[in-house]
Amino acid sequence: MSFWYNQVPMEENFNSGHLACQGCGATIAMRFALKALGTNTVVVIPACCWTIIDGAFPAHAIKVPLFHTAFETAAVVASGIKSGLRIRGKGDVTVMAWAGDGGTFDIGIQALSGAAERNEDIIYVVYDNEAYMNTGIQRSSATPYGAWTTTTPEKHPEDRPKKNIMEILAAHSIPYQATATIAYPEDFIRKFKKARDIRGTRFIHVLSPCPPGWKIPSDVSVKVSRLAVETRVFPLYEIEDYGEKYTINYWPKGLPVKEYLKIQGRFRHLTEDRIEYIQQFVDRQWEKLVLKHKLSHGTLDNIPKNVIYR
């Protein structure tokens, strides 16, 4: 067993200045991602919080090239960059599209579906803060059931479950998919390194706490990420072998969903029966995931229960 300090590279590909809010999950996520991928990488960013976070011209927070593009085009511009580099003899460069949930679940899903279906040689990361945070917290199809946003006010909060983007991508038969959160850096970095060394479309779903949007204090982003995993709201798992092999990376404690909901102001209005409804939904999703793991491995015994770094 090795420990976190040699699993998280010392290499820092992020400058000290950026324009994110305090406690922004997407910023910590980018820092970890670039630690894992290194500098033989280029990044494509559509309209999202990261359009701002990297800085206004001529500032540039990350230490790799960045191409900004329109909202719905991250996956296909990354495909084009990859083709351009490959035909110029630079096919070894990692091309990463880095988009929010709006640019992925909603407006960008067509280009993403196209790129995934063609198995373009890109890493596509969605940092999912579960609403249009950059424009001021409007709901997206990644907004979970019951959540408040500025377009789903407390009198009529979000009334549909979050779109299951991992299953949508699994249906595209791509070589690698994973979920990750900033609460588990070793797992996060392992997955990005693994993704870097696989060819074809790789998709990583990062849960990205947003202090102003989730109405949480800026010092609990990591804690809320951990609770998302421990309550099974956001389990850590991988899908390999072109959508066939499911692997749960960590067996959560199975804390009540309420523990996750109650520390976020966006769920403050929820009544007990709504919380129970969410609990049942989360339980059902978890059971299905466990079955898929069992189908892939023939056992549940190989799911780590204490540590998730291997």
Partner: peptide, 9 residues
């Protein structure tokens, strides 16, 4: 969008 990426590369 794809040719924009390719040309930028």
């Amino acid at each position: 969008s794809a040719v924009i990426g390719a040309s930028a590369a």
